[in-house]
C-alpha cells in the first residue's frame, strides 16, 4: 500500500483504510447517472422494484410492462420503481501552501489527504465514478474517473504524490465544473481565500449537484497561541506583518474568525450546500465520520 509521511505521520495507515472500506456513500438527492450504481434514486424509472404505474408509450422497454394489469384492464402500463443509480463523485482537494501547516496528527495536509482518501475510497467501494481534482491557483493533474474498489490503491498513490504549494483559488474549480453534468462535489479546503466560494456553489447548485464543503482548520488557527511582539508571515504569499499580540488582539482575532466561518456557513446554506467544519485535533473516525453520516454524506 503506498503511503506518505508528513510531519512524521503515515498518512494512510492500514487500520484507517480498513475502516473506511466498510462505509458507504449515501446520496440524499436525485442525481443523474447510469443504472449500475448502488444509490437509490427518487427518479421514477422502470425498475424491478415496483412503486407506481404509467401508461405505455412507444419505445418503452417491453420487459417492464405489467402483464397481469393488462390482463385485468386491457391496457398497457409500465411498472415504475426506484432504481439503483451510480453517481459522479468529484473531490476537490485544496493543496495550497496554507494546508501544509501544523504538527503531527494535527497537520492540516495529513487531515485533508485522509479526508480525501476516506471520501474517495468509500465512493469507489460503492461503484461510483470518482474523480479527484487537486487545485491551487489552477487545477492540477486529476485522478479518475475511476470506478470500483480496485482503484483505491491508485487513488492513494495519487494522493501520496500531491505537492502542497501555491495559493487557494476556487475559480479554478468553478471553471472546471461548467462542462460537467452534475454529481456529488466534495470540497476539502481551509478556504483561506477572499472570493470564489459563492460563485463555485452557484455553479455546483442543486439539483444537478450535491455539494459538501469540508472546512479544515487547525486548532491554532482558531485559538492562536501567540503572545508578545511577533512578525507574522503569510505561508502562501510570504507577506509579513508586525504585531504586538496580547489578550485583546487574540480576542479580536477570534471574533473575526468566528465571523469568517459563519459567513462561509451562510453562503453554503444559501446555495444548498452542506457545510462541515473540521478541526484537525479531532479524531477523523470518531469526529468527522459521524458528522458526515448525520448529514447523509456517508451511509
Amino acid at each position: 500500500m503506498p503511503s506518505r509521511i508528513i510531519s512524521n505521520i503515515e498518512v494512510f495507515d492500514p487500520a484507517f483504510l480498513a475502516r473506511i472500506e466498510r462505509l458507504t456513500l449515501q446520496s440524499s438527492r436525485l442525481l443523474r447517472g447510469g443504472l449500475s450504481g448502488e444509490h437509490a434514486s427518487r427518479r421514477h424509472l422502470p425498475a424491478p422494484t415496483f412503486s407506481d404505474h404509467r401508461a405505455y408509450s412507444p419505445g418503452d422497454d417491453l420487459r417492464h410492462i405489467d402483464w397481469p394489469a393488462y390482463a385485468r384492464h386491457q391496457e398497457l402500463h409500465l411498472k415504475l420503481g426506484e432504481t439503483e443509480q451510480d453517481i459522479d463523485v468529484l473531490i476537490a482537494l485544496d493543496t495550497s501552501q496554507s494546508l501544509n501547516w501544523g504538527q503531527g496528527q494535527r497537520h492540516k495536509a495529513v487531515y485533508a489527504l485522509r479526508l480525501a482518501a476516506l471520501v474517495g475510497a468509500v465512493a469507489l467501494a460503492s461503484n461510483d465514478h470518482v474523480q479527484l481534482w487537486p487545485f491551487q491557483t489552477r487545477l492540477l493533474k486529476q485522478f479518475g474517473p475511476a470506478t470500483g474498489r480496485g482503484r483505491t490503491p491508485d487513488l492513494l498513490r495519487f494522493l501520496s504524490q500531491l505537492p502542497f504549494a501555491g495559493q487557494t483559488h476556487l475559480p479554478a474549480i468553478t471553471r472546471g465544473l461548467r462542462n460537467r453534468s452534475g454529481g456529488l462535489l466534495v470540497l476539502i479546503s481551509d478556504l483561506w481565500t477572499k472570493a470564489g466560494l459563492d460563485a463555485l456553489l452557484k455553479t455546483a447548485a442543486a439539483p444537478r449537484w450535491q455539494t459538501v464543503v469540508l472546512h479544515v482548520l487547525h486548532p491554532d488557527e482558531i485559538r492562536p497561541r501567540l503572545d508578545g511582539p511577533i512578525e507574522l508571515e503569510d505561508s502562501e504569499t510570504g507577506a509579513t506583518i508586525s504585531l504586538l499580540v496580547d489578550e485583546a488582539a487574540r480576542r479580536a482575532y477570534y471574533e473575526r474568525l468566528i465571523g469568517w466561518v459563519r459567513a462561509i456557513e451562510r453562503t453554503c446554506r444559501d446555495r444548498g450546500a452542506t457545510y462541515v467544519g473540521v478541526r484537525t485535533d479531532r479524531s477523523l473516525e470518531r469526529a468527522i465520520v459521524p458528522v458526515l453520516r448525520r448529514r447523509a454524506v456517508l451511509g
Binding site: W101, K194, P229, E231, L232, E233
Partner: peptide, 10 residues
C-alpha cells in the same frame, strides 16, 4: 520580534 509563519494573514 519572533518571526512566525501562519497559514494566512487574512
Amino acid at each position: 520580534r519572533r518571526r512566525l509563519q501562519v497559514p494566512t494573514l487574512l
